[in-house]
Structures are given as C-alpha cells and as structure tokens.
Amino acid sequence: MIRLLTRDLRLAIRAGGGFGLAVAFFLIVSILVPFGVGPDRATLAPVAAGILWVGALLACLLSLDRIFATDHEDGSLELLATSPVPLEALVAVKALAHWLTTGLPLTLAAPLFGVFLSLPPSGMPWLIASLAIGTPALSMIGAFGAALTVGLKRGGLLLSILVLPLYVPTLIFGADTVRRGIEDLGPMTPLTLLAGITLGAIALLPFAGAGVLRVNLR
C-alpha cells in the first residue's frame, strides 16, 4: 500500500505541477476576490475566512476527477482491483495521495493568502488548524465521488454536482472555526465537530468508495 502511495506521489510530481496547480488556483481566487468586492480592509476582513475556505474547497474539487480517471483509462484500475490490495485500501490510499498533493499544500499556503485577504492575525492559527483537520475530509469525500463517476463520460461536471452538497458540513464547521477564532467565541466547538466529520469520513467512506468501484468495474 505504501508502494501505491509512493507511485501516486511520484506520478503527481512527474506529471509536472501536481503539487502546484491547486495552490496556484487558490492563489488566483484569493487575488480575484478583492477585485470583486473592493480593496477595503473593512470589507475584506469579515469575509476572508469564508473566501479562503470556499477557495480551498474549489481548489480541492478541481483535481478530484483525476483520482481514478487516469488509472481507469490506462487499465491500471482493473489490474489494481485484481491485485492483493483490497479496494477499500485503494480508495483510502488514493484519498491520502490526493490530500498530500492538494490539501496539505493548500493548508501550508493558506496563511499567505490570508494576508492578501486581510484575515485578522488572531484567525491565522485557526485557519491552519481548520484546514489541516478539514481538508482530509474533502479528499476522502471527493475520492468517493470520483469512484462513483469513474466510468462516465462528462463525469467531471456530474462529480461536482454530487460532491459539493456533501461538502456542506465540512465547509460550515471549517469556516466557522476561523470566524469564531477571530472573535474569540469558542472555536474549539466547530473544530471538534470538524474533526468528527473527518474521522467519520475516513472510517466509513473507503467502504462506500470500494463498493461503487466494484460496481463500476463490473
């Protein structure tokens, strides 16, 4: 399974910009928002937390359809399904690889973009904490959605329609953590709930993902 992870990471690096693309998208969103809402600190600061979370979520969404699609196209997915690796583990490892190439870089880059958006300094640690804890859920839910749409033509658009509603609780608790962190209103509560969603997703979704993969490979 570690082999699978290292292969996926190596592929991401060799393909060029595997790590960078999501962050670049995130950067562009963070730059475009001030153009849209105006450069005023007073306007930007209150919405910064929400923009950063929505931006991270969209950046995450962008690369979801590649999780299984490349392996499906070149036949690796069928071969992997007949290999000793259980499909449940395959889904989990794929989600982990996706998180390492998108969620983790996004988390590390977020404070910088927080500065662009005038996020108050008191919110910074909470932004990092909420992204670090919340983005694994985004990758895991996304891997399930990618498994669901793997065999489909025009699966990418459908994938967004299926996955975005599933992202609602993560987004709410994630952005709320930062907001409460800024106003010092007890950010631990949403952060704990966010951790609960992440743990629940990691515990259950590999099974659902493996189930739909099996159906799709039939």
Partner: peptide, 25 residues
C-alpha cells in the same frame, strides 16, 4: 489478469512500472 489495456504509466520507467506491480504482489 491481463486485458487489452496494460496499465502502464508513461512517466515512470520500465523498471519502475514493473517494480510497482512486483511490490504490490
């Protein structure tokens, strides 16, 4: 099982492709 598609990753070398499957099995 071997099907029409070989499951080869173009960016990996021949040895890397094989080592991956060898490790997996």
């Amino acid at each position: 099982y071997a099907a029409h598609a070989d499951g080869i990753k173009g960016t990996l070398t021949v040895a890397e492709n094989l080592s991956f499957w060898a490790g997996l099995f």
